[in-house]
Design a binder for these strands. Structure first.
Lengths: 147, 147
DNA sequence: GCGCGATCATTCGTATGCGAACAATCCGCC
DNA sequence: GGCGGATTGTTCGCATACGAATGATCGCGC
Protein backbone atom coordinates (compact mmCIF):
# COMPACT_ATOMS: atom_id res chain seq x y z
CA UNK A 1 0.00 0.00 0.00
CA UNK A 2 1.46 3.40 -0.90
CA UNK A 3 2.20 5.91 1.87
CA UNK A 4 -0.49 8.54 2.49
CA UNK A 5 -0.31 11.40 0.03
CA UNK A 6 0.07 14.95 1.33
CA UNK A 7 -3.00 17.17 1.13
CA UNK A 8 -3.50 18.29 -2.48
CA UNK A 9 -1.54 21.49 -3.10
CA UNK A 10 -3.79 24.29 -4.37
CA UNK A 11 -0.78 25.57 -6.26
CA UNK A 12 -0.31 22.42 -8.31
CA UNK A 13 -1.73 23.06 -11.74
CA UNK A 14 -2.12 26.76 -11.07
CA UNK A 15 0.01 28.60 -13.62
CA UNK A 16 0.00 32.31 -12.93
CA UNK A 17 1.06 33.06 -16.49
CA UNK A 18 -2.08 31.40 -17.86
CA UNK A 19 -4.61 33.34 -15.78
CA UNK A 20 -6.85 35.75 -17.66
CA UNK A 21 -6.20 38.51 -15.20
CA UNK A 22 -2.48 38.25 -15.52
CA UNK A 23 -2.67 38.06 -19.30
CA UNK A 24 -4.96 41.07 -19.46
CA UNK A 25 -2.62 43.05 -17.27
CA UNK A 26 0.41 42.15 -19.38
CA UNK A 27 -1.36 42.77 -22.69
CA UNK A 28 -2.59 46.15 -21.51
CA UNK A 29 0.87 46.95 -20.22
CA UNK A 30 2.38 46.14 -23.59
CA UNK A 31 -0.16 48.31 -25.36
CA UNK A 32 0.55 51.27 -23.09
CA UNK A 33 4.27 50.93 -23.82
CA UNK A 34 3.53 50.97 -27.57
CA UNK A 35 1.27 53.97 -27.10
CA UNK A 36 3.88 55.89 -25.16
CA UNK A 37 6.61 55.22 -27.67
CA UNK A 38 4.37 56.48 -30.48
CA UNK A 39 2.67 59.48 -28.89
CA UNK A 40 5.51 60.25 -26.50
CA UNK A 41 4.92 62.92 -23.92
CA UNK A 42 2.03 64.53 -25.79
CA UNK A 43 -0.77 62.49 -24.29
CA UNK A 44 -1.25 59.49 -22.03
CA UNK A 45 -3.73 56.81 -23.13
CA UNK A 46 -6.40 58.06 -20.75
CA UNK A 47 -5.85 61.68 -21.72
CA UNK A 48 -6.13 60.57 -25.34
CA UNK A 49 -9.42 58.80 -24.67
CA UNK A 50 -10.91 61.74 -22.80
CA UNK A 51 -9.76 64.32 -25.35
CA UNK A 52 -10.84 62.37 -28.43
CA UNK A 53 -14.24 61.66 -26.91
CA UNK A 54 -14.65 65.31 -25.96
CA UNK A 55 -13.75 66.46 -29.47
CA UNK A 56 -16.30 64.02 -30.82
CA UNK A 57 -18.99 65.33 -28.47
CA UNK A 58 -17.84 68.96 -28.79
CA UNK A 59 -19.12 69.55 -25.27
CA UNK A 60 -19.64 67.33 -22.23
CA UNK A 61 -19.92 67.22 -18.49
CA UNK A 62 -17.02 65.82 -16.50
CA UNK A 63 -18.79 62.84 -14.98
CA UNK A 64 -20.58 62.10 -18.24
CA UNK A 65 -17.30 62.07 -20.13
CA UNK A 66 -15.89 59.84 -17.44
CA UNK A 67 -18.70 57.33 -17.80
CA UNK A 68 -18.23 57.23 -21.55
CA UNK A 69 -14.50 56.59 -21.25
CA UNK A 70 -14.58 54.29 -18.23
CA UNK A 71 -13.12 56.58 -15.58
CA UNK A 72 -14.68 57.20 -12.21
CA UNK A 73 -15.27 60.80 -11.05
CA UNK A 74 -12.09 60.88 -8.99
CA UNK A 75 -10.00 59.74 -11.94
CA UNK A 76 -11.51 61.92 -14.65
CA UNK A 77 -11.09 64.89 -12.35
CA UNK A 78 -7.31 64.57 -12.42
CA UNK A 79 -7.19 63.77 -16.13
CA UNK A 80 -9.26 66.81 -17.09
CA UNK A 81 -7.33 68.98 -14.67
CA UNK A 82 -4.10 68.15 -16.49
CA UNK A 83 -5.67 68.75 -19.90
CA UNK A 84 -6.97 72.12 -18.69
CA UNK A 85 -3.55 73.02 -17.27
CA UNK A 86 -2.04 72.35 -20.69
CA UNK A 87 -4.64 74.45 -22.51
CA UNK A 88 -6.22 71.56 -24.39
CA UNK A 89 -9.61 71.77 -22.66
CA UNK A 90 -11.60 74.61 -21.12
CA UNK A 91 -14.09 74.49 -18.30
CA UNK A 92 -17.28 76.53 -18.73
CA UNK A 93 -20.03 76.83 -16.17
CA UNK A 94 -23.46 75.61 -17.14
CA UNK A 95 -26.09 78.27 -16.32
CA UNK A 96 -28.91 75.72 -16.16
CA UNK A 97 -27.21 73.58 -13.51
CA UNK A 98 -24.63 75.15 -11.29
CA UNK A 99 -23.27 71.80 -10.14
CA UNK A 100 -22.01 70.93 -13.60
CA UNK A 101 -18.88 72.05 -15.37
CA UNK A 102 -19.19 71.94 -19.15
CA UNK A 103 -15.97 70.86 -20.86
CA UNK A 104 -15.01 72.14 -24.31
CA UNK A 105 -11.84 71.35 -26.25
CA UNK A 106 -9.70 74.31 -27.28
CA UNK A 107 -8.50 74.75 -30.87
CA UNK A 108 -5.15 73.35 -29.78
CA UNK A 109 -6.95 70.45 -28.13
CA UNK A 110 -8.81 69.66 -31.36
CA UNK A 111 -5.60 69.88 -33.38
CA UNK A 112 -3.76 67.53 -31.03
CA UNK A 113 -6.67 65.08 -30.89
CA UNK A 114 -6.85 64.80 -34.67
CA UNK A 115 -3.10 64.32 -34.95
CA UNK A 116 -3.20 61.68 -32.23
CA UNK A 117 -6.02 59.79 -33.90
CA UNK A 118 -3.89 59.48 -37.03
CA UNK A 119 -1.14 57.91 -34.92
CA UNK A 120 -3.78 55.82 -33.19
CA UNK A 121 -4.09 53.66 -36.27
CA UNK A 122 -0.39 52.80 -36.13
CA UNK A 123 -0.65 52.09 -32.43
CA UNK A 124 -3.53 49.71 -33.00
CA UNK A 125 -1.62 48.05 -35.81
CA UNK A 126 1.47 47.59 -33.63
CA UNK A 127 -0.55 46.30 -30.71
CA UNK A 128 -2.29 43.71 -32.88
CA UNK A 129 0.88 42.85 -34.78
CA UNK A 130 1.19 39.32 -33.33
CA UNK A 131 -2.15 38.34 -34.87
CA UNK A 132 -3.15 37.88 -38.49
CA UNK A 133 -6.24 39.70 -39.84
CA UNK A 134 -8.71 36.90 -39.10
CA UNK A 135 -7.35 36.50 -35.58
CA UNK A 136 -7.51 40.24 -34.97
CA UNK A 137 -11.15 40.29 -35.88
CA UNK A 138 -11.83 37.33 -33.63
CA UNK A 139 -9.83 38.77 -30.75
CA UNK A 140 -11.57 42.15 -30.94
CA UNK A 141 -14.98 40.51 -31.08
CA UNK A 142 -14.24 38.43 -27.97
CA UNK A 143 -12.60 41.32 -26.14
CA UNK A 144 -15.61 43.52 -26.84
CA UNK A 145 -17.84 40.99 -25.12
CA UNK A 146 -15.60 40.92 -22.04
CA UNK A 147 -16.71 44.41 -21.04
CA UNK B 1 -19.75 69.88 -60.39
CA UNK B 2 -20.11 69.39 -56.62
CA UNK B 3 -18.59 71.96 -54.24
CA UNK B 4 -15.14 71.07 -52.87
CA UNK B 5 -15.33 68.68 -49.94
CA UNK B 6 -13.76 69.67 -46.62
CA UNK B 7 -10.54 67.89 -45.75
CA UNK B 8 -11.35 64.35 -44.61
CA UNK B 9 -11.92 64.31 -40.87
CA UNK B 10 -9.48 61.94 -39.14
CA UNK B 11 -12.18 61.35 -36.56
CA UNK B 12 -14.72 60.02 -39.03
CA UNK B 13 -14.76 56.27 -38.74
CA UNK B 14 -12.62 56.33 -35.60
CA UNK B 15 -14.64 54.74 -32.83
CA UNK B 16 -12.80 54.97 -29.54
CA UNK B 17 -14.83 52.12 -28.09
CA UNK B 18 -13.57 49.75 -30.79
CA UNK B 19 -9.85 50.38 -30.29
CA UNK B 20 -7.81 47.50 -28.88
CA UNK B 21 -6.17 49.71 -26.34
CA UNK B 22 -9.41 50.99 -24.97
CA UNK B 23 -10.93 47.51 -24.90
CA UNK B 24 -7.88 46.11 -23.13
CA UNK B 25 -8.03 48.84 -20.54
CA UNK B 26 -11.74 48.29 -19.89
CA UNK B 27 -11.44 44.51 -19.79
CA UNK B 28 -8.55 44.72 -17.35
CA UNK B 29 -10.47 47.25 -15.29
CA UNK B 30 -13.44 44.91 -15.08
CA UNK B 31 -11.23 42.02 -14.04
CA UNK B 32 -9.62 44.07 -11.26
CA UNK B 33 -13.06 44.99 -9.96
CA UNK B 34 -14.03 41.29 -9.89
CA UNK B 35 -10.75 40.46 -8.16
CA UNK B 36 -11.24 43.12 -5.50
CA UNK B 37 -14.79 42.05 -4.74
CA UNK B 38 -13.63 38.45 -4.29
CA UNK B 39 -10.36 38.89 -2.42
CA UNK B 40 -11.31 42.13 -0.75
CA UNK B 41 -8.64 43.95 1.17
CA UNK B 42 -6.42 40.90 1.59
CA UNK B 43 -4.38 41.31 -1.58
CA UNK B 44 -4.29 43.44 -4.70
CA UNK B 45 -3.87 41.68 -8.06
CA UNK B 46 -0.19 42.61 -8.25
CA UNK B 47 0.46 41.59 -4.67
CA UNK B 48 -1.29 38.31 -5.46
CA UNK B 49 0.91 37.72 -8.51
CA UNK B 50 4.12 38.49 -6.64
CA UNK B 51 3.20 36.42 -3.60
CA UNK B 52 1.98 33.37 -5.53
CA UNK B 53 5.05 33.38 -7.73
CA UNK B 54 7.28 33.71 -4.68
CA UNK B 55 5.55 30.80 -2.94
CA UNK B 56 6.03 28.77 -6.09
CA UNK B 57 9.75 29.63 -6.25
CA UNK B 58 10.18 29.44 -2.43
CA UNK B 59 12.96 32.02 -2.74
CA UNK B 60 13.73 34.76 -5.26
CA UNK B 61 15.48 38.03 -5.82
CA UNK B 62 13.42 41.18 -6.04
CA UNK B 63 14.26 42.12 -9.62
CA UNK B 64 14.01 38.52 -10.75
CA UNK B 65 10.55 38.18 -9.23
CA UNK B 66 9.62 41.43 -10.91
CA UNK B 67 10.70 40.17 -14.32
CA UNK B 68 8.69 37.00 -13.87
CA UNK B 69 5.54 38.90 -12.94
CA UNK B 70 5.92 41.82 -15.31
CA UNK B 71 6.81 44.58 -12.89
CA UNK B 72 9.73 46.93 -13.28
CA UNK B 73 12.18 47.37 -10.38
CA UNK B 74 10.51 50.55 -9.18
CA UNK B 75 7.11 48.87 -9.06
CA UNK B 76 8.11 45.56 -7.48
CA UNK B 77 9.96 47.52 -4.83
CA UNK B 78 6.74 49.07 -3.55
CA UNK B 79 4.76 45.85 -3.87
CA UNK B 80 7.29 43.82 -1.89
CA UNK B 81 7.65 46.60 0.64
CA UNK B 82 3.94 46.39 1.42
CA UNK B 83 4.03 42.58 1.61
CA UNK B 84 6.98 42.80 4.01
CA UNK B 85 5.20 45.43 6.10
CA UNK B 86 2.27 43.03 6.46
CA UNK B 87 4.45 40.10 7.45
CA UNK B 88 3.75 38.02 4.35
CA UNK B 89 7.30 38.13 2.98
CA UNK B 90 10.73 38.40 4.57
CA UNK B 91 13.91 39.89 3.18
CA UNK B 92 17.12 37.94 3.73
CA UNK B 93 20.56 39.03 2.64
CA UNK B 94 22.47 36.85 0.20
CA UNK B 95 26.03 36.24 1.42
CA UNK B 96 27.31 35.49 -2.09
CA UNK B 97 26.15 38.82 -3.54
CA UNK B 98 25.68 41.74 -1.24
CA UNK B 99 23.63 43.66 -3.78
CA UNK B 100 20.83 41.14 -3.71
CA UNK B 101 18.01 40.73 -1.26
CA UNK B 102 16.58 37.23 -1.17
CA UNK B 103 12.82 37.16 -0.66
CA UNK B 104 11.11 34.34 1.21
CA UNK B 105 7.41 34.01 2.00
CA UNK B 106 6.48 33.68 5.66
CA UNK B 107 4.18 30.91 6.88
CA UNK B 108 1.35 33.43 6.92
CA UNK B 109 2.28 34.45 3.37
CA UNK B 110 2.10 30.85 2.19
CA UNK B 111 -1.23 30.36 3.93
CA UNK B 112 -2.71 33.49 2.33
CA UNK B 113 -1.32 32.63 -1.10
CA UNK B 114 -2.87 29.16 -1.07
CA UNK B 115 -6.22 30.53 0.07
CA UNK B 116 -6.09 33.22 -2.61
CA UNK B 117 -5.29 30.72 -5.34
CA UNK B 118 -8.45 28.81 -4.43
CA UNK B 119 -10.45 32.00 -4.90
CA UNK B 120 -8.47 32.68 -8.05
CA UNK B 121 -10.40 30.00 -9.85
CA UNK B 122 -13.69 31.74 -9.11
CA UNK B 123 -12.22 35.06 -10.19
CA UNK B 124 -11.12 33.59 -13.50
CA UNK B 125 -14.54 32.01 -13.93
CA UNK B 126 -16.31 35.31 -13.27
CA UNK B 127 -13.99 37.25 -15.56
CA UNK B 128 -14.58 34.82 -18.41
CA UNK B 129 -18.29 34.50 -17.69
CA UNK B 130 -19.39 36.31 -20.89
CA UNK B 131 -17.75 33.63 -23.03
CA UNK B 132 -18.65 29.99 -23.55
CA UNK B 133 -15.96 27.30 -23.08
CA UNK B 134 -14.83 27.24 -26.70
CA UNK B 135 -14.62 31.01 -26.82
CA UNK B 136 -12.68 31.12 -23.56
CA UNK B 137 -10.10 28.78 -24.95
CA UNK B 138 -9.83 30.85 -28.12
CA UNK B 139 -9.64 34.12 -26.22
CA UNK B 140 -6.91 32.90 -23.89
CA UNK B 141 -4.90 31.52 -26.78
CA UNK B 142 -5.05 34.84 -28.64
CA UNK B 143 -4.41 36.88 -25.51
CA UNK B 144 -1.35 34.77 -24.71
CA UNK B 145 0.10 35.66 -28.08
CA UNK B 146 -0.44 39.37 -27.49
CA UNK B 147 2.33 39.44 -24.90
C1' DG C 1 -42.43 75.69 -0.55
C1' DC C 2 -39.88 72.35 1.57
C1' DG C 3 -37.42 68.43 2.49
C1' DC C 4 -35.00 64.35 0.91
C1' DG C 5 -32.77 61.44 -2.15
C1' DA C 6 -29.93 61.78 -6.29
C1' DT C 7 -26.30 63.86 -8.88
C1' DC C 8 -21.99 66.68 -9.67
C1' DA C 9 -17.55 67.74 -8.57
C1' DT C 10 -13.75 67.63 -5.26
C1' DT C 11 -10.53 65.84 -1.90
C1' DC C 12 -7.91 62.32 0.67
C1' DG C 13 -5.63 58.03 1.08
C1' DT C 14 -3.68 54.04 -0.96
C1' DA C 15 -1.82 51.22 -4.74
C1' DT C 16 -0.05 50.40 -9.22
C1' DG C 17 3.13 51.71 -13.09
C1' DC C 18 7.19 53.57 -15.20
C1' DG C 19 11.19 56.83 -16.62
C1' DA C 20 15.20 58.66 -14.78
C1' DA C 21 18.81 59.11 -11.74
C1' DC C 22 21.59 57.12 -8.11
C1' DA C 23 24.86 54.31 -4.92
C1' DA C 24 26.63 49.86 -4.06
C1' DT C 25 28.33 45.87 -5.74
C1' DC C 26 29.83 42.38 -8.97
C1' DC C 27 32.48 40.52 -12.84
C1' DG C 28 35.23 40.14 -16.94
C1' DC C 29 39.17 41.64 -19.11
C1' DC C 30 43.45 43.87 -19.45
C1' DG D 1 45.39 44.40 -9.15
C1' DG D 2 42.34 47.53 -11.11
C1' DC D 3 39.10 49.62 -14.20
C1' DG D 4 34.79 49.83 -16.83
C1' DG D 5 30.46 48.05 -17.81
C1' DA D 6 26.57 45.51 -16.03
C1' DT D 7 23.36 44.40 -12.37
C1' DT D 8 20.74 45.21 -7.95
C1' DG D 9 18.02 47.81 -5.34
C1' DT D 10 16.33 52.56 -4.05
C1' DT D 11 14.31 57.09 -4.57
C1' DC D 12 11.80 60.83 -6.92
C1' DG D 13 8.27 62.55 -9.85
C1' DC D 14 4.28 62.02 -12.45
C1' DA D 15 0.01 59.73 -14.03
C1' DT D 16 -3.67 56.47 -13.61
C1' DA D 17 -7.19 54.13 -10.64
C1' DC D 18 -10.67 53.77 -7.14
C1' DG D 19 -13.14 53.73 -2.41
C1' DA D 20 -14.87 56.83 0.80
C1' DA D 21 -16.25 61.09 2.50
C1' DT D 22 -17.82 65.86 1.64
C1' DG D 23 -20.30 70.10 0.05
C1' DA D 24 -23.18 72.17 -3.38
C1' DT D 25 -27.02 71.81 -6.06
C1' DC D 26 -31.02 69.83 -8.35
C1' DG D 27 -35.63 67.83 -8.79
C1' DC D 28 -39.33 65.04 -7.32
C1' DG D 29 -43.02 64.38 -4.20
C1' DC D 30 -45.79 65.84 -0.62
Amino acid sequence: MPPPQPAPDPLSGYVLEDQVGHLLRRAHQRHVAIFQSAIGADLTPTQFAALVKLVELRRATQNHLGRLTGMDPATIQGVIGRLVARGLVERASDPTDRRMVALVPTAEGVRLALAAVVQGRDITEATLAPLDPAERHQFLALLRRMI
